[in-house]
């Protein structure tokens, strides 16, 4: 063929939109992280490294000469990453069987099942989150059913716990795992599965050595789609977690809102970007290496 030009050509329309509406603005954020905070939000065009300093270190509020690591920020970072990992794991555990279930239905009903996954998401995120709240609050549906059945005597505190946040995040992000998995499974070569069983492989062996390698692209896409937005999640931790502990999204929003320190918010956002890109590269490397190992 004629070099790589046509590949670029196919990507151009998407890249134009992305450059205009995503990368351009990001550049602004990068620049802002090196400026000084303006009065009541905004920035003053004076170069400063203060924001970046404050991301990692803090001067003691009462002893300005005392400088130490900014443990609050580090903790928020770590909490967000850990919670996102757990969310991705839960989505995978629930999403894989669900996608499998859909992909193994008769062909003409698969689309229906697929729609069934997305229908709850036609409702607004906040409304959905409030509905989950209704379900798990102390005198909500779940506790009412458990008490009625005699399993418990007093309501279980589920709202405003990490459990609630995880439940809500898994709920919100589930389709982002199921749909790519389904897209990959739908085209799976079942003759290989059959061959596996013919060779007396156990179900677990077939799952691990035959099915998983085939649906891996879907799995990668799904975990990226869940993990990354989960890190910046804002509404779910605030409503279901009760906002008692901050996630990265909340911390950054605080700086752009009531904290009125846009450069610090921008610097935190840039750091998050670096962390996410780093994690992504690491992830793709590891997944890619396994691929080669298998072939070799």
């Amino acid at each position: 063929m004629h070099g790589h030009g046509w590949k670029w050509l196919l990507c151009t329309p998407a890249l134009i939109v992305l450059l205009l509406a995503a990368s351009g603005p990001l550049l602004i954020v990068a620049v802002y992280s090196f400026l000084s905070p303006g009065n009541m939000g905004g920035v003053v065009w004076e170069f400063s490294l203060e924001a970046w300093f404050r991301v990692f270190f803090r001067r003691d509020i009462f002893e300005p000469d005392l400088v130490e690591w900014n443990r609050a920020h580090l903790q928020v970072f770590w909490r967000s990453i850990w919670l996102s990992l757990q969310t991705t794991f839960i989505c995978a555990v629930l999403g894989f069987p669900t996608a499998w279930f859909i992909a193994t239905r008769p062909r003409h009903t698969r689309t229906i099942w697929l729609f069934l996954i997305t229908i709850p998401f036609w409702t607004n995120l906040l409304i959905r989150t409030f509905a989950i709240q209704e379900m798990i609050r102390n005198n909500g549906t779940v506790n009412a059913v458990l008490m009625w059945s005699g399993l418990i005597d007093s309501p279980i505190q589920m709202m405003f716990t990490e459990f609630a946040v995880l439940l809500g995040m898994a709920y919100v992000f589930l389709p982002l795992m199921v749909l790519p998995l389904y897209a990959a499974m739908e085209k799976m070569d079942f003759s290989l599965v059959e061959a596996g069983y013919d060779l007396y492989a156990s179900r677990l062996n077939v799952l691990w050595h035959v099915i998983l390698p085939q649906v891996k692209p879907g799995f990668i896409a799904g975990s990226i789609l869940v993990f990354i937005p989960a890190i910046g999640a804002y509404v779910t931790p605030r409503v279901l977690g009760g906002g008692r502990t901050m996630m990265l999204g909340n911390l950054i929003a605080l700086q752009f809102g009531q904290g009125r320190n846009w450069p610090l918010g921008a610097a935190l956002a840039m750091l998050m970007l670096v962390v996410v890109v780093g994690a992504l590269i690491f992830y793709l490397r590891v997944v890619g290496r396994n691929d080669e190992a298998r072939r070799g």
Binding site: A14, L18, A22, S23, V29, I228, Y234, G249, G265, A269
Partner: peptide, 14 residues
Amino acid sequence: ALINQPLMVPEIVT
């Protein structure tokens, strides 16, 4: 990276 970039920045920042 460009295609996935909107995913990597929290909505508030974008």
